[in-house]
Design a protein around this nucleic acid. Structure first.
Lengths: 259, 259
DNA sequence: CCGTCCGCACTTACATACAAGCCTTGTATG
DNA sequence: CATACAAGGCTTGTATGTAAGTGCGGACGG
């Protein structure tokens, strides 16, 4: 495909189409690509061309490029100068670090939530659990993950920390990519909701120790699944024994998966 | 000052001046501005114009803009569309969150370091402490802070987590801006080195509980100082009762401090 | 004197043009 | 046939041009 054979964009937009330009183009592109990556719609290793994306989304390269830079900061893409940008492969190190970070932050927040949370928090959490069970029954994988995200996010809010979720979400993105691959295991998923429920139960009884144990076990279990996945999808993972200081697995040729 | 009265940049660079263009211009600008902000060379509230910075650094607006976007992600600058970009004021909420995050991550890492660290780690840490004491005697504030950063970074490496420092450093930046203001208190500073030493001592003895207590106390003490500072420099702090959801303290007029 | 309105000077957001590096592939040569 | 080489097409990096929003300040009317 030749680049940019599309007709030049009109500099003056028709006003019928832009009711809410409140959110910047960059933010929209960033959110879109992030969703595509974490949902595995874009597989690890897939190339992301600034030109192609700009053409597809009908915007200029500038906001696309800025979005890719931000995704690079989150390690969701790897940018190789003058070579190309690719969805990052799942790095064992990155997953380990993400798991560690998530565990440390969520457990610390939970300790505070035990004393700070109130009835509205518990009610909101239980509502999310109900929705998650519904999604499970309906076989709605996307909805299930949405509610999972909502649960952990709401749990952190219950601790009074409102801005910390961004950091946890960044770490969680790496774990989620791996978890998505384990979806075909339905028995595992049912367990997850039960584990969530145990956390809320302990939280409601203000039982700090039990809440902590429940959440820790839950997070550890999620992490353990990833090892199982790796065996069946090795091409999605980065070289396991890579030195972090050295060049980060530059692809010899444009790594496959194109189209 | 009128914008861009500088002569047009030569598109072809003289090659005598660029021996190592390995690091992108964006990365250099980002690092430079970050250093200026965390060192308080650029005070909270100070305006950062893409045009002015591009002219001063003799680069185009593009890498400057990209660097500012990254700093915005770290909450070190606030970008108000079509209005201006300003060094972020020290937000009490942000400092609280940074403190919480740092404490959670560093303590969790320390727990692992107690079992994983070895003699080389201890030796490296003690060397850093010596350097820190030297900087203290010499009255070298910048050097002191450098060694402080090195200490905490090395401590995290001793736990085996190599990539986690980036996250901690982002949080630490907000705390450091406040701490810089407390430098005139020399008695406090001497305490800091002693606290660091206590952590290493306990770590060497593999005394997890004592190491944890020492580090927790140290981090808490650092945090307590910030409250003291706030009284004497209120203009550097954001509105204390600001709703995080609402507009983030948009400046009525370009906030002063301009040259 | 005071309020209102309008334009100007500044900003960032987005679009486009140009530069430079890497890989592939076709081609010529041994 | 194998290999060296060079050109071309792709990529991202940087530079610059254009659009559009915001607040300030002066002109103007009351």
């Amino acid at each position: 495909m030749a680049a940019q054979r599309r007709e030049p964009r009109k500099t003056r937009r028709v006003e019928a189409e832009a009711p809410r330009p409140r959110e910047s183009v960059r933010a929209r592109v960033h959110a879109l690509l992030r969703a595509r990556i974490t949902s595995l719609e874009l597989l690890p290793g897939a190339p992301l061309s600034e030109n192609e994306l700009a053409a597809e989304l009908d915007v200029s390269r500038t906001p696309v490029r800025e979005a890719l830079i931000l995704l690079g900061e989150e390690s969701l893409v790897d940018v190789f100068p003058k070579l190309g940008t690719f969805v990052s492969r799942i790095s064992v190190d990155a997953v380990l670090e993400a798991q560690f970070m998530r565990e440390a932050l969520e457990l610390a927040a939970l300790r505070e939530a035990v004393t700070k949370s109130g009835a509205p928090d518990i009610a909101a959490l239980r509502a999310i659990l109900d929705a998650q069970r519904d999604a499970l029954k309906a076989g709605d994988a996307d909805g299930f993950f949405e509610q999972d995200e909502a649960f952990h996010r709401r749990l952190m809010e219950a601790s009074g920390h409102r801005t910390l979720w961004r950091t946890v979400a960044t770490a969680k993105a790496h774990l989620d990519r791996a978890r998505r691959l384990s979806l075909p295991l339905p028995h595992r998923i049912e367990t997850l909701v039960d584990e969530h429920t145990a956390v809320v139960d302990a939280l409601e009884r203000r039982d700090a120790a039990r809440a902590e144990d429940a959440l820790r076990g839950h997070l550890q279990g999620v992490f353990d699944d990833i090892g199982t996945i790796r065996a069946s999808h090795p091409e999605l993972f980065a070289d396991p024994h890579e030195q972090p200081g050295s060049a980060p697995a530059r692809p010899r040729v444009h790594p496959g998966l194109r189209a």
